[in-house]
């Protein structure tokens, strides 16, 4: 019988990403309901010391695969190692982050193991011993609740920023195990030639807790300075509508929406964005939405928790000043 829930921890440059802790936290909740253990799979090089952090959030066991060829994520090496471990130990469930890495890995792993995968889940539960996953479809215009047939393990990826973190328990101990695997260089057909970090090292939109987004109402690229200033003050990441990206004012990586990034921050401030259906699809799961727009009829106001009708060139700088006072 397949047993236990695995999560695949995600690290970049040796640092665990927040989604790893979200995964452990959620796995803990599911495992408690099933009376089963949680194991975290950690791949990298010289990474063992990070295992304890995963324990604090609820992992019973951390299986560490340490190898120079696992320093940076590649599909070939990671899938090979995780598939070997899964075939040997038969976990019931494997959870990964719905990050670029997790989505890439999960599909290939699933095909290798001949099982299904549910991507980008926002809620998980166990029914009759099976994983049940709720996931947005049509970029959140609807949700599908899906389950698995004839799939061991059952694989799902969890959207970052959605699953609640457990309170870390410093006193929790964790068993750390060296993974048994073999990596054959001839299987490794891809190579990371270069890692390009965006200047400023700002938090990515998909992981940001706060986002300040600008639309065509911003009038031009220079004007984004007022959004940057607000964002700097409240530790937010700046996003954009597609019109802005199409106009070349901001890079594509900044686009929020159905064909951009789907985000769910705690706070989303939309400035000069009308609220087209494709934009709303990308941000309507944000916990609190603020809209600043001069047109009281703009559809964005229907999604906003707080709406301000006004000229953003007046309201945004005034908001920045007002927040400086309360912070």
């Amino acid at each position: 019988m397949a047993q236990g829930i695995w999560i695949v921890a995600e690290q970049r440059e040796g640092e665990l990403r927040k989604v790893s802790f979200e995964l452990v936290s959620e796995a803990r909740r599911l495992a408690d309901a099933m009376g089963q253990p949680v194991a975290a799979i950690l791949l990298g090089s010289n990474i063992k010391e990070k295992a304890a952090e995963l324990g604090k959030y609820g992992a019973d066991k951390v299986i560490v695969a340490d190898d120079d060829r696992l320093t940076t994520y590649t599909t070939d090496a990671y899938v090979s190692v995780i598939a070997q471990l899964a075939q040997a130990q038969e976990p019931a469930i494997i959870l990964l982050g719905a990050s670029v890495q997790g989505k890439d890995l999960s599909g290939r792993l699933a095909a290798r193991l001949g099982v299904g995968v549910a991507q980008d889940c926002v809620a998980l539960s166990i029914e009759d011993g099976n994983l049940v996953a709720k996931r947005p479809i049509y970029a959140g215009k609807a949700y599908a609740t899906v389950t698995y047939t004839d799939s061991v393990p059952q694989i799902a990826t969890a959207r970052p920023n959605v699953f609640e973190l457990n309170e870390p328990d410093e006193s929790r101990s964790v068993e750390v195990i060296d993974a048994e695997f073999s990596l054959d260089d001839s299987q490794l057909k891809t190579k990371v030639a270069e890692v390009i970090e965006e200047a400023g090292g700002k938090v990515d939109l998909t992981e940001a807790e706060r986002i300040v987004s600008g639309g065509r109402g911003m009038k031009g690229p220079e004007e984004f300075a007022i959004l940057e200033e607000l964002a700097d003050l409240i530790a937010a990441t700046v996003g954009a509508s597609r019109s802005v990206v199409d106009a070349g004012w901001r890079p594509h990586a900044d686009q929020v929406g159905q064909t951009g990034k789907v985000v769910s921050p705690n706070l989303y401030i939309a400035c000069g964005i009308s609220g087209a259906i494709q934009h709303l699809a990308g941000m309507s799961t944000s916990k609190l939405i603020v809209a600043i727009n001069k047109d009281p009829e703009a559809p964005i106001f229907q999604k906003a928790d707080y709406g301000v009708v006004g000229d953003l060139f007046e309201v945004v700088p005034a908001l920045t000043e007002a927040l400086k006072k309360v912070l």
């Binding site: 699933a110 001949g114 099982v115 299904g116 995968v117 549910a118 049940v132 947005p136 479809i137 959140g140 215009k141 609807a142 949700y143 599908a144 609740t145 899906v146 389950t147 698995y148 047939t149 004839d150 799939s151 309507s284 799961t285 939405i289 106001f301 229907q302 999604k303 906003a304 928790d305 707080y306 709406g307 301000v308 009708v309």
Partner: peptide
Amino acid sequence: KIKVIQITPPEERAAGKM
């Protein structure tokens, strides 16, 4: 391998405040 149990609309957001 994946079976759709049901499709549901997004949860309504509570009415906002101007």
